[in-house]
Amino acid sequence: MSSTNLRSEIYKTIGFTYRNYIITKRNFFTLFETLFWPIIGLISVGLMGAYLNLDKNYLAFILIGAVTLSVLQVSQLDVAYVLLFDMWSKSLRYTFVTPISIFNMIFGAWFFGAFRGLVAFLILVVSGKFLFDLNLLIDPVGLFIFLLGIFLSAMIIGTLTCSLLLIFGYRAEVSAWTLTAIFMLLCGIYYPVTLLPPGLREMAYAIPLTHFLEFYRSFYGFSPSTNNPALIGYSLSFLFLILLFLTLMWASDRARKRGTVTQFSE
């Protein structure tokens, strides 16, 4: 790839980052998503832990679940919204007529989603420390590995939502808000996945986020069920992403054949 082409690809990707940034800046609802709900989640779960008189490590266990849920939800919404913004404003044809690829679209939105997720995380670090004496910065390298894992999971959920939107249209809109909850339920948000019934437990192990949660909780004295949860989490993430990018490419091509793009623009 020549430097001109590379620069052009970077601009195309930044285009989506720029759009999501402007919409977030101007939209009170998206600001709310970043600031309000994560803090509400942390406080309510933290108070429940205090009421149950949990020791420090157990409190950290469930608060890590609450923090992960918020950061994941905030980050994935940007990726899921990349198509939804166009569908809601009926401008999908103007995006699809440009020479962008699905990679420009997903990565551009993801960069901003990761940034929003990071902002939400930092707020939760400060709130967690101040309100519940929770130390989320216990291991900086481990934290980096964990956060990147959450952001990759956000990309997975967002890409899955985009594929579903192109295949099923507005009927799949709800997946933008529900997939995270389903993932978190399986991944052991406030409990170890060993509690899940057989079948669901195997499904949980197939999801990368389960391993990232086990990885970070191991710093608080909870042993993971595998030897190298971070490596397994990353391997599964890349596998999921390859499969989902192929699905999204297929869904885009299908949308061209079926006229979905023009339908969503009328």
């Binding site: 620069r7 052009s8 690809e9 601009y11 195309k12 930044i14 285009g15 989506f16 720029y18 759009r19 402007i22 103007y94 995006t95 440009t98 020479p99 962008i100 420009n104």
Partner: peptide, 11 residues
């Protein structure tokens, strides 16, 4: 206009 020009790789 800025957004769409970026999508064409133009800054």
């Amino acid at each position: 206009l800025r957004y769409y020009s970026l999508l064409y790789g133009i800054n």
